[in-house]
Design a protein around this nucleic acid. Sequence first.
DNA 1: GCAAGGTC
Length: 983
Amino acid sequence: MKYLNVAEKNDAAKNIALHLSRGTSKRREGLSQYNKIYEFEAEVMGQKCQMVMTSVSGHLLALEFASSYKSWQSCNPLTLFDAPVIKYCPENYEKIKKTLEKEVRSCQGLIIWTDCDREGENIGFEIIEVCSAVKSNLRIFRAKFSEITSVSVRRALQNLEQPNRNISNAVDVRQELDLRIGAAFTRFQTLRLQKVFPSKLADSLISYGSCQFPTLGFVVERYRAVNNFVAETFWKIKVNHTINNLSVDFAWDRIRLFDQEACQVLHDICIENPLAKVVNVRTKPKSKWRPLPLDTVELEKLASRKLKINAKETMRLAEKLYTQGFISYPRTETNEFPKEMNLRQLVEHHTGDPNWGRFAQGILDDGGATPRQGNKSDKAHPPIHPTKYTNSLSGNEQRLYEFIVRSFLACCSKDAQGQETTVSIDVANETFSASGLMIIARNYLEVYPYDKWSSKEIHVYENGQTFNPTSIDLVEGNTSPPNLLTEADLIALMEKHGIGTDATHAEHIETIKNCSYVALADAVHFVPSLLGMGLVEGYDAMGLNMARPHLRAQLEADLKAISEGTKQPDIVLAEQFFLVLKCPKCGSGMTLRQKKNNADELFISCLSYPSCKNAVWLPNVVKSLQVQDRTCPICGPNYNIVKFEWRNNSISHLYPPPYDGCIGGCDPAFLDILQINPSSVKPSNSNQNISNNNRPIVENRTNNIRPQAQRQTTIGNMPTRNNTGNRQTGQIAPTVNGSRVQNTAQTRLPAPRIVGDSEDNNVLCSCNKPAIQLTVRKQNANFGKKFYKCATMRENGGCDFFLWAPESENTVQNQFETPPDSGRGSAPPSAGTSNSSRGWGIAPTFSRTDYTPNEDNVMCNCGVPARRVTVQKEGPNKGRPFYGCPKNFSSRCNFFQWADSGTNVEWNNSSTGNSRGRGRGRGGGGGSRGGAVGAGDTVVMVGAGAELDGAESAASAGRRGTRGPDAQIINKIHKGPMDCRKQ
DNA sequence: GCAAGGTC
C-alpha cells in the first residue's frame, strides 16, 4: 500500500515526514522547486505502508471570472454579480499540480495534511479534486493535528478521519462572494471616481473589499469621534497630606463637578473647616492576574504594544517559528489549554535557560503548571506555546520566541499578590480617599517584564484620627477626546466584529495603507485620508453602510452555519446579494434601501441611479421585507419571492403575515394595495425580455466550472436594516488627563423626572416617587417660597431631594412647612433675596464673607469686590475675562463687566442670546448674552443648558434643566452646605 | 488595474 501525503506547505511536509519517519525520510525533488518530496515508511491502520509526502503552497486553485468579463471595459460592473466564475490553477501553481498528478498515479491512498482550519479543509478538497481526476478509486483520508510535533502527528496518523465537505463549502461561498463583490465595487468606484476627479485620482486604484472597508470604517469612525469631541471643563477638590517628604493625594469621592460655582462653594467650605478626620481604613488583598494563554490576536496586539513589532511582521515571524517546530500553530482562537496537554513537560524544556530557567524550575517545584483558563476555543488548536527549547535564535525572531515562552511560563505561574490599604477621610462633610499598595509576592511578574505593577506608599492612618491637610486645592481640568486608533486597537476591533481572520488582520491594515485610505499620524495612530473619509461618507450618504462591520459579521455567521451543515451554500450566496429584482427600465439590479433619516421607510431603488431613477416606494404598512431564494413562477426569473411582514393588521386578512408574495405584477391587487406603480416593476411591453443580457457563459478551462451563474437567486434581504447607524465605537468614555475615567453620567444619581404639567405635583424625587410641595414658613428672605422634597421622611428612608419650585408657583402661599434638613431649627436655604432666585434650581445656603479685592478694584453693585472670572462657554468670547458679583447664586446682584474693556453691561436674564453649547461648566447659560457669558446668571440650571434658548422663560427652561443629571449633583451637594450653613 | 484566503 502506498499513500500520497499532501501538506499545506513545504515546511509542514518536511517536519511531518521527519516526525513520522523518526528522521529517516529521504528527500527528492518534485517539479516545483519549493515543494520537495519526502519518502519514508510508516504504519497506517496497522499496516506498514510506503509514504510519499509532498505539499502545495496554500490554495492550489483560484477563482476568476470567465474571460469575457475580465477586461474592465468589457462589461458593466453590475454584471459581475452573476457572471460565470471559474476555478482554475494559476500558472505559478501548475508545477505543484503536476507533481500531485504524477505522484498520485503510483498510490492507492491519499492523506490530506493541510492545516486544520476552514481554509485548510478547502485546500484539502482542491488536492482531492486534482488527484481524483487522474486516479479514481483513491482511498482518501484526513489527518487532524494541531501542532507539528511528533506526538501530535503520530496521533493524527493513527486516527485518520474523513475530510469535511461542509467546512470546505463555506470557503467556496466566501471566495465567490469576495470575488464578485470586490471586483464589482472596485471596478465601479475606481472608474467612476477617476472620471469625476481625473486630476487627483487618475492613477489610483480605489479598491473595495468586504474586510478592508470595515477596517477603514473603524479608522474613520474614531477620527470623527475625536474631531467631534467637545471638551468640557470640570473642577475637583484635591486634598494633600505630606509628612516627611511622603506626599499622599486624597481624591474626591465626587470625582469632579462640571459646575464651577458648586465646586468653588464646596472648596470654600473645606477651606473654612479644613480638619480632616479619618473615617475608614480598609486593608484587603489585591492581586494582579497573570496573562491568559495566548491566542493569535493577543499575540499580535501584545507584540505591537510591547515589542513594537507590527502585526504583519509578528505573524511572519510566528509562522517561521512554527514551521521550525519552536512554537505551536500560531493561528488559534483558543485561550485555554486542553486538560490532556502535558504542560509540565513543556515547562521542563525551559529549566536550563539562563534567563527563565530558574523560574520554570520554580513552577515545577511549586506543584506544576496551573494555567489561567480563558473562555475561547476553536476546537482545533491549543493556545500558542513553545513546543521546543532553543537559544539559537536572534533578532526579532528571538524576541518573539522569548515573549511566547515568558507568556507561557507566566500563565502557568501564579498571580501577583499585594495588600491594598484604602483610607477615607472627611473634610467638612466631603469625603476623600487615598490608597496604598504593598506588593507581597511578584510571582508571574518575575518572568513577565511586559507588565508593570508597583507599590505605592501611604501614611499609617487610624480610624477616627484627625489631621490638618497640607493643602486643599480646587483643580480645574478638561475632559479629553478618545485617542486615535493604534494598530492594536484596530486589530481588537476587527476581531470583535469578525473582520478578516487571525491570519489576515495585518494584511487588511496594509491594504488600506497602500490604497492611501489611511495613514499613520505619528507612526502609531491611524488617521483617514481625504479619499478614505470621502469613500465612507459617500456610501453613508447613499444609505449603504459599506464601511460598517455588520455585513462581514453576517457572512461569517452564515459561513459557520455552512461549516456546521445547517445552511445551504446556495442560500447564503443568494442572500448575500441584496438585489430584489431586475430594473424593468434599465436591466440593472434593484436593491432594498431605507430612507436616510427614517429606517422605517423602505424603498427599492435601481443600482444605476442616478442615470436610472426607477424606484419602488413601499407604504408604511410594510414593516420588513426579506427576499427569498426562489423566483416567481409567473413573473419569471427576474422577480424573486419576497417575504413581507406588516406593521399593522390592516391588510393581514388579505395577506396573512409572513406573506410570501411577488411584486412583479402577477397579483395586480397586491400591487394596488401596496400602492406600487406597475410601470416601476415591469416593462411597459410585457413581452420585452430584459433578462438575457447576463446569461452565463460557460468556459471550460480546467473542468472545474461551477454553475453559479445558472442560479436565479441573486437576491436577499437588505443587510443594513437591523443596524441603522449604530456606531460600534461611538460610546467612548471621555478621558481625564489622558487616563480613561468613568462616564460622567454613571457617577451621577438618576435624574428627577418631571412627568407632566408643573401645575400638578408631578416632580419625582431621587427615589423616583412624586415629591411633595411645601412652602417656607420661617421668617426669612425665603418666606413664602415653595419647594419640593421627598415625600418620605429622612428617618424613614426618604432621600435628600430638594428643589425650589418655579417662581410662578410661589405666588400663592397655601402651605407653610419647614424645608428639609431643618431639624436643628434652621430655615430653608437662602442667604440672599428671593427675587434673584427664579425658576427651578437650588438656592445655596451659605454666603461668602471673605471677598478678596481684585487687581482692577472693580466693585459690584452690592459694594463688594467683584470676582474676576473667565468665559468658559464655547463662543466668540471664550477665554475672555469678566467681572461678576462674587456672591452666591441667590444673593448675587446683576453686575457684569468685561475685564478687558471696562464696559459695563446691564445684566438681563431674559436676553435672547443663542447659547447653544454643552451647557455644563457655567451653570447652563440660560441667560447668556451673545453666547458669551452664563456666569452671571442667577438661576442655577445645569445639565440641559445646551438645549436652552435664552428666549425661553426661566421657568420652562428650569423645568428642562432639572432633567439633566447635573441637577441631581446639585441636589446632592445641597445637603452638605445646609448642615453647616451660617444663620 | 479588481477580493480574501492560503503561502513563497
